[in-house]
Design a protein around this nucleic acid. Structure first.
Length: 569
RNA sequence: CUCUCGGUAGCUCAGCUGGAUAGAGCAUCUGCCUUCUAAGCAGAGGGUCGCAGGUUCGAAUCCUGCCCGGGAGGCCA
């Protein structure tokens, strides 16, 4: 409809003002007295021509062609052009919406998109912060796919580096304890109970293979790095133990994500970037390019990247003085790998704590002569939990963080997803546990699901009374229910596509959540004031045509969010 | 100190590419179940959009300054 309106307005602009093109808005109105659609075309033109918008509007409207879908056009306020649609236009829309597979929702310019999200370190279970990113990334992928894009969901596994060694060391020490060996457990090691479980499984797999021998003691206070080096000397094949720990953690993570309806379809290992081939590893080749382009220098035996030349506040280390590459260096290689796979757009979903990291990565991409505009990094802000009006304290260091699993075990997958998604992602989120657990209208998830369940229940009642709904007959008889209420609902259904395309454009999910809440409210209100199973067949069919369209909105909307649409509650 | 994100109803938040009377939900108050789900609905009250300037026909929205709050600034990841 929007494009039809634009077409006739633009034609009028061309004719009356001899302009080839003009950038103006056509938007839905907020109040009914302003019609269904409204355009600011005269206001824009007025500014440009320094003329009264109202007069321009009158000129534009004077000779608009008559259309079947157009009831009337009005000029209002400072010069808005308001369009009132005919009932016929509304029923035509509904017919279309119900009959097709929503292929009209697909963009005419589909893209190939890579979205990387979660990518939490395999050093422990994922916590609620990652959970928010997980919900967001998966819903965004669903939405982009629904609107026509081809989407790959990727998880980048940091399976090498200091943190993974510390993980292995933590497990190794707990493993020693299982053999009644006394150890000093350093503060820097992972404190959570999951380490002990991991140690238990390590014992089942390796028996006493990695049991410290007499000459190797771990009772002294020493730093983890020294301990790890010591272990590698005594156990040359210790990397097998490390791999075991990482795989175990990744299995946990995969399990938690799957329970949360998050399904990545590609897993990239950081370690693989270092795999040797004839002309060196992928990682080495990327570093060589940076060196050749003279964006690096040696200082204090470390290799530095000149990120200051790319608006970063200082230069950054790529290879430490102990020859170990930094996380940043790996990430440059990883992103180069993303670019090599020929996507139209790359999306990163990152926690807010990585915010300052964006300039240096973009700098590195430019140094590699890659178009950093292709990469869009979205920031997910922190989640804090509130229970009984009080903040739940969390401390990662002590292992007291709340895991995603704990949260969904308590409040359920559906509510957790919705609460994560309903807030603008770059805003801090206060997660009210009590509210999320409520099963009444205070809880928006239940409110929306209930709307769907009510519709299903209507259908069940129809069946029970041995009636058959003829949807097409209903569509032909929509004029029977062309009251303000119904037309308002049709208008709201029509808004679905706008909401989705806005989400697609802005890479956001929360507008969909708000929309579903609103249309659910309209339905409940309508439901309350109406009888649906009418004696008159035409009237009954007409009402159900509308109800079926609503059902389709709830189903599709919730599906994008990966939230159940229950048939009964 | 630098960067960054915020400050909108009592509370939690939408709206921010400038537009019409600033919107939801919760909470508060008043009503509605012999009917197909009351897990619901109808109605009411509630606002100097942090402060001060500026830009213009028009500012919650854009610009500048200030006040207050969150977060980030490793050869950790």
């Amino acid at each position: 409809m929007k494009s039809e309106i634009r077409e006739i307005l633009l034609a009028s602009v061309k004719k009356n003002y001899k302009k080839k093109s003009l950038d103006f808005d056509i938007s839905r109105t907020k109040t009914k007295s302003h019609g269904n659609w409204s355009s600011n075309v005269a206001l824009i033109l007025g500014k440009e021509l320094k003329q009264q918008p109202k007069i321009i509007a009158e000129n534009l409207v004077k000779n608009l062609p008559k259309k079947k879908w157009l009831e009337k056009v009005e000029i209002a306020g400072p010069g808005f052009v308001n369009f009132f649609l005919t009932e016929e236009a509304q029923s035509f829309f509904l017919k279309n919406f119900l009959s097709n597979d929503l292929s009209s929702f697909k963009s005419k310019m589909p893209r190939k998109i890579l979205i990387e999200y979660v990518s939490s370190n395999p050093t422990g279970p994922i916590h609620i912060g990652h959970g928010r990113g997980a919900a967001f990334g998966s819903a965004l992928a669903n939405l982009l796919r629904f609107t026509g894009d081809e989407v790959i969901e990727e998880y980048y596994i940091n399976d090498r580096g200091l943190q993974t060694d510390v993980l292995a060391l933590s497990v190794f020490l707990r493993y020693q304890e299982l053999f009644k060996v006394k150890v000093n457990f350093p503060e820097e090691c992972y404190q959570g109970d999951y380490i002990k479980e991991c140690a238990f499984l390590a014992k089942e797999k390796f028996f006493d293979k990695y049991l410290a021998k007499k000459d190797l003691k771990f009772t002294d206070q020493s730093n983890p790095l020294d301990l790890i080096n010591k272990i590698y000397i005594v156990f040359p094949k210790f990397s097998e133990f490390v791999d075991f720990c990482i795989h175990l953690q990744m299995d946990q993570i995969r399990g938690d994500l799957s329970k949360f309806k998050v399904h990545h379809n590609n897993w990239v290992s950081e370690k693989d970037l270092y795999k040797d081939s004839d002309d060196g590893s992928f990682f080495e080749r990327i570093i060589k390019v940076l060196k050749n382009n003279e964006f690096t220098y040696l200082q204090d035996e470390a290799l530095w990247f000149k990120s200051k030349e790319f608006n970063d506040e200082k230069d950054r280390v790529l290879i430490r003085n102990n020859q170990d590459p930094t996380y940043f260096a790996s990430d440059i290689a990883y992103h180069k790998f993303k670019f090599e796979r020929d996507f139209d757009q790359l999306i990163n979903v990152w926690g807010a704590d990585h915010h300052g990291y964006i300039p240096r990565l973009n700098g590195a991409l430019e140094a590699l002569e890659l178009d950093s505009n292709k990469l869009k990094t979205l920031i997910i802000q922190f989640v804090s939990l509130v229970r009984s009006g009080k903040n739940v304290s969390m401390s990662t260091r002590k292992g007291e963080f709340i895991t995603l699993k704990e949260l969904i075990d308590e409040v359920g997958v559906e509510a957790t997803r919705f609460f994560f998604l309903a807030r603008k992602s770059d805003q801090a989120l206060e997660f009210d546990i009590d509210l999320a657990k409520k099963e009444d209208k205070n809880n928006p998830v239940y409110y929306i699901q209930y709307a769907h369940a009510r519709i299903c229940s209507l259908e069940k009642e129809v069946k029970k009374r041995k009636l058959i709904i003829d949807q097409n007959n209903g569509l032909d008889n929509l004029k029977l229910i062309a009251n303000e209420n119904e037309l308002d609902i049709i208008n709201e259904i029509e808004r679905f596509q706008d909401v989705l395309s806005q989400c697609r454009k802005d890479l956001e999910i929360h507008p969909l959540c708000f929309y579903l809440r609103e249309i659910a409210s309209k339905f409940h209100s309508y439901y309350n004031a109406n009888k649906f199973i009418e004696d008159n067949k035409d009237l009954r069919d007409a009402k159900f045509a509308l109800v079926f369209a609503l059902k389709k909105v709830f189903q599709q909307g919730l599906e994008i969010l990966s939230i159940n649409a229950p048939e009964k509650m």
